[in-house]
Design a protein around this nucleic acid. Structure first.
Lengths: 253, 253
DNA sequence: CAGTGGTCTAGACCACCAA
DNA sequence: TGGTGGTCTAGACCACTGT
């Protein structure tokens, strides 16, 4: 990581810095390696620490750097490809807990049920390479579950927690036939999600909303949040070639 | 937007500020309205301007605020749902230009051709409600096009620009049968893309990589970038109910 | 303990826009 | 021209990590 010139250009310093740093981590560093600390880098480039941090913020958002308090700033591993589809979800998800509660105004609207109606909420977490990379809240009207004796659980007080969660998921698996419709957008993790992802609040996440249809009607709703820094969501007929990491192509031409 | 307390809490000031501001814009402001300027807000909340700006940065990332230099900070309109699928793309995209050039090392690898082989690059832009919300670069090996006389253009020097672009797209439409496979991840717009999107460099974008298959083989590659602040990508069998904006549900429970 | 990144401050100047 | 957001500075203190 050579010294710097930072010739006066019309572009902001932090953006120029980002470019310089990006070239450096691509050519002179390898995954997991720590780069020089912020105070040294800012001195070396002759900028304020805040300006340097602005450049590091960008690179962290792009998933190229990971910052660990008390440790340093590391070159991030390439993003992991996470398949987003009902089929192959099974393995990697772990049920955290499950609860049944009356639907709030907004949830009822989104689920297409009456406000106050009982709704099961299953909370799951996806672990990839020993790291929690996604959380999911799955909402399903309790009425749909009650109508199915084979699934209704034994005890008089309805089961709670992981057991009910797994039951709900089993049911959903048999229910869904009409397909799913999805939306992806950018969001930030709030308190609970952030805690599950072991990240500070405000962490950028890719929010995937999935509507499950059955009998031409909305049957369930899932809201999943994936760590934007470490995840690349993959869709579609997984046949074909492995999906090429994008960064390679985008900077090529 | 009432005055503020900012009671001492273990969470960072900027995050607490974000929450307070979010409540305010949800309850006391409407789309397009300008909120008080940064200097006034920072004074009102008793924090430095930089701290306030950190909170506004978060809300802008979430697509809740839009900042315009020289104007002020406005409450953003809800994100527009943008369908991502070959079928219904036709209308909203405009070909910007097209060129044919030898494939770089990395592009060749991603396309599955030999380095240096001629590749058509079609640059498109998607306009939604009068605003450019996405750019796309579509790569297709020139050899695939040459084999099809009906498409080959008349002039001896191969056509360039928009005309060739449209020809490539027409060809691709007839070619693709085996389906597509996609990946979505977070990125930032660099110089060219940022200019097309009429945004500063570093603007967060949702990067969609699409591989088009034909004859069990990779036929074309498209890299699309959508403005993360204004776009919600929608997938799947567009039948069903309209996709519910997520923000409603995520903050509900 | 020393070293790291995370937060916050007070102030300055610039680029842009409308009147 | 006055007001807005965008950039940058120099410094301080805190929270966390390893030794």
């Amino acid at each position: 990581m050579g010294t710097a010139q930072l010739t006066a250009v019309p572009e902001p310093k932090y953006w120029h810095l980002r470019t310089v740093l990006l070239r450096a981590i691509d050519s002179e560093f390898t995954t997991g390696q720590v780069i020089p600390n912020e105070r040294e880098l800012s001195a070396r480039f002759g900028v304020a620490r805040a300006t340097l941090r602005q450049a590091l913020d960008q690179l962290e958002l792009e998933g190229r750097l990971v910052r660990r308090r008390g440790i340093g700033t590391l070159v991030a591993a390439p993003r992991v490809g996470v398949p987003v589809s009902r089929r192959e979800e099974g393995e990697a998800w772990q049920v955290v807990d499950c609860a049944t509660a009356p639907a709030s105004e907004r949830l009822a609207g989104a689920l297409g049920v009456a406000p106050g109606e009982a709704v099961h909420t299953v909370r799951r977490v996806r672990v990839e390479q020993g790291q929690t990379v996604a959380t999911e809240s799955l909402y399903l009207a309790a009425a749909l579950l009650e109508q199915v004796p084979e699934i209704r659980l034994s005890g008089a007080p309805v089961a709670e927690g992981e057991e009910l969660g797994r039951a709900v998921l089993r049911r959903l698996e048999r229910l869904t036939v009409d397909g799913e419709s999805r939306a992806v957008e950018l969001g930030v993790a709030e308190a609970e999600e952030a805690a599950l992802l072991q990240r500070p609040p405000g962490t950028p996440v890719l929010v995937v909303t999935t509507q499950y249809a059955a009998g031409g009607r909305l049957a369930a709703l899932a809201v999943s949040t994936y760590r934007a820094d470490t995840c690349r969501l993959t869709f579609g007929e997984t046949g074909l070639v492995e999906v090429t990491p994008v960064s390679a192509v985008r900077t090529a031409s």
